[in-house]
Each structure stands twice: as C-alpha cells, then as structure tokens.
C-alpha cells in the first residue's frame, strides 16, 4: 500500500489551487464585463433595457448558485450541446458574479451627485459620454473597496463547481481524501489554502475603505 506524506497532500492541493485561482480570475473578469453591461442597461433611459437588467440581477441573486451550476450543466446538454464541467462552471460563475457586481456598482454610480449628470448633459454629452468621462471615473473610486471585498465571495464560490465535477481545490481535496483516508488533514489544509487566498483580499478591502474614506473627508 502506498503511504502519503503530508507534503504529498499539500503539494497536490497546491497544484489544484491553480485551477481555483484561474476560475476565480475568469469569473471575476467575465463577471466584471457582464456587470458593466447590466449596469449600463440598469441605469439607461430605455425602460425595456432597465427591466431586463433588473430581471437578470434578481434571477441570479435570488436563486442558489448551486442550482445555477446544475441548470447550466444539464440545461445546455438538453439543447444538444455537450458541456464540459469547466464551461458550465465558468458560465454560471460569470453570470452570478455579474449580477452581484452590477448591484454593487449601481450603488456607486447612484452615489454620484445628480448635479454631475446635469452639468455634463448641459455640455451636450450623450449618455455614454457622460458615463465614460464624468460618472464612471468618480464612481470607480468608491467602487474599489466593495469590489475587492466581493472577490472573496467569488473565490469561495468556486468551491461549489467541484459538485458538477470541475477539479479545483475542493474536488481535489475529496479525491485526495479518498486516496489517503485523512479527511482531517486534507480538509484542514484546503481550508488554510482558501484562507491564504481570501484573507489578503478581505484585509485589503478593509484598508482601502479606510484609506478612501480619509481622502473623502479631506476634500
């Protein structure tokens, strides 16, 4: 019988961590793009676009992520597309992240005083010009801390993709447990690795918030 040293366990967990990080990045960047589109629709003059954005946001915020993963995984196969777990995982996580970031960013856009919109429209700027040159640069500043904070949720959410069979840190933990029969050690290390990924993000979000608040007070 093969014996496994603790180093074997940690090494293999770290190998799988790459996939957790990659999936988090894909979900965060893709979710950012989705959120930007949803944000533009949500704050636009067009009523249908606004409704559609609200529906998208409510749908993905109002149902469990695990259900969304299952629906993507099995739903796309139903229409005859064979979906590998990584694709279903990436798609579901991107849309889930987008729905949350869109609401976070909407709060930031709405925190910009009305006068800024009025001033820029008095300069004959179109909606997109107003967004691009006046509102977004200011909103971006207040958006940084909550966005970094939400990235922690994204990293943790990737753990759920193990359930539809995507091999990342959580799935690897289960597989290694099945081989080594040391669940305490394996899940303990997995938790520590997640902590090492998430804690710096949480902390920097807190620090950024404090820093930007100080700047705000001095202005």
């Amino acid at each position: 019988m093969t014996t496994f040293t603790t180093w074997d366990i940690v090494r293999n967990l770290l190998l799988a961590t790459q996939w957790t990080i990659l999936l988090s990045l894909v979900a965060f960047v893709g979710g950012g793009v989705a959120a930007l589109l949803a944000l533009l629709a949500r704050t636009s003059q067009n009523r249908a676009a606004r409704r559609l954005a609200v529906f998208y946001i409510e749908l993905f915020q109002g149902t469990p992520l695990l259900m969304q993963l299952f629906l993507f995984f099995f739903g796309l196969s139903l229409v005859g597309v064979n979906v590998p777990p990584w694709l279903a995982a990436a798609l579901a996580l991107i849309l889930w992240t987008g729905a949350f970031l869109a609401e976070i960013w909407r709060g930031c856009v709405e925190a910009i005083p009305r006068g800024q919109w009025e001033a820029s429209s008095s300069l004959a700027m179109s909606y997109f010009e107003q967004m691009r040159h006046v509102v977004l640069p200011q909103a971006l500043r207040i958006a940084v801390p909550p966005t970094v904070g939400f990235s922690v949720q994204v990293v943790k959410a990737t753990a759920l993709t193990s359930i539809i069979g995507f091999v990342e840190l959580s799935k690897a933990s289960t597989m290694i447990t099945n081989a080594t029969f040391q669940p305490f050690v394996v899940y303990g290390f997995a938790a520590l690795i997640y902590f090492a990924l998430c804690w710096p993000l949480s902390k920097s979000s807190q620090l950024l918030e404090r820093k930007l608040n100080v700047a705000h007070r001095n202005h």
Partner: peptide
C-alpha cells in the same frame, strides 16, 4: 469562517 468556503467547513 468568513474567508473559507462553506463546502469545506461542512466537509471538515
């Protein structure tokens, strides 16, 4: 707790 996934807490 806030920096680890619920799934891992449950499995642990």
């Amino acid at each position: 707790i806030r920096n680890t996934p619920f799934l891992i807490q449950l499995f642990f």
